[in-house]
Amino acid sequence: MPLLETLPVRDTVRQWPVWSTTARVVVTDAAVADEAEEIVREQLNEVDEACSRFRDDSEIARIQHLSTGHRPVTVSPLLAVLLGVALDAARNTDGDVDPTLADDLAALGYTEDYSLIQARAGRLNIPITLSRRVRHSWKDLDLTGRRLRMPAGVRLDLGATAKAWAADRAARSLADRFGVGALVSLGGDIATAGPAPQDGWQVLVQDGVNEPAARVGLDGGTAGLATSSTVSRNWRNGTRAVHHILNPASGLPAEPVWRTVSVAAGTCLEANTLSTAAIVRGEDALHWLRGQSHPARLVAADGSVTTLNGWPTEDVVRIDAEQVHEIHLPHEHLTSAA
């Protein structure tokens, strides 16, 4: 189950459900909190209309229907940006973060909003098979300005990069519009902009009540923090547990070498790209992330924690009951599905 934020909602905070998770907006001036929420809601709606793979009326659904591979299709300025950042993420990770995996996710049962997947946990049973079909990849897409050329049959999932980009965009918009410090969290993908509070933005890094927790402050040039997980957004397909971060080489869920990977970077988009790619890279992630120079924290399958590149050494963090959020499938669901 994705992050369900349960931190206190103060007068500087607005919070609401979106995309099967939680949007949380924090501003340094309570007077602008209502307007901030309105702006962010509007921006998220725009992103959803542009690239949701769960809506038949989204622009990306129409584009996929029109694409033949022969003639380019003109997309909206917003979708062009979203496609651009997705392709940049793929390029910067040597294809580990690939936007052409929508069909593979669907083959695993992720065909609709995650809240609906979770609601029928234990009743999903789609055979998981390795096919010999020619796999599409990000390299099959050609985006020039707003002109997209894409082979027929490619289905896109821009989820990871679109959400992180949306968080960055929203935080910057609030800071620019109101001249305040702003933090925007979309399901735990966190972007900040404008002047930070005196001690920096305080972030609890934890992927569920039973997972190791850390608390860090963000300030200066580190404006984004993202966590990718193999234990969130997971579901049962028959007797097999699957999760949503796929290895593009196989189209199957990445090996759960890491329970979570968190990365702090200049933007939420960059942080999310690195954390997602690290999950895909598995055991090679340590060496690769070290070379990326951004602070990172990795929780291994056995619960051990490794931190890199200046991520603060961890103290034991005791979480107040009011700050606990539940992000796992209920145990009884797992038991009954097995």
């Binding site: 399901g187 305080q202 972030v203 963000l218 602070p295």
Partner: peptide, 20 residues
């Protein structure tokens, strides 16, 4: 390669970063 911009946390959390 230590990096600036991130420090040990202090005080109450503004937000949670978990898997999304």
């Amino acid at each position: 390669s230590g990096s600036s911009g991130i420090s040990p946390g202090s005080g109450s959390a503004d937000a949670t970063s978990g898997g999304s």
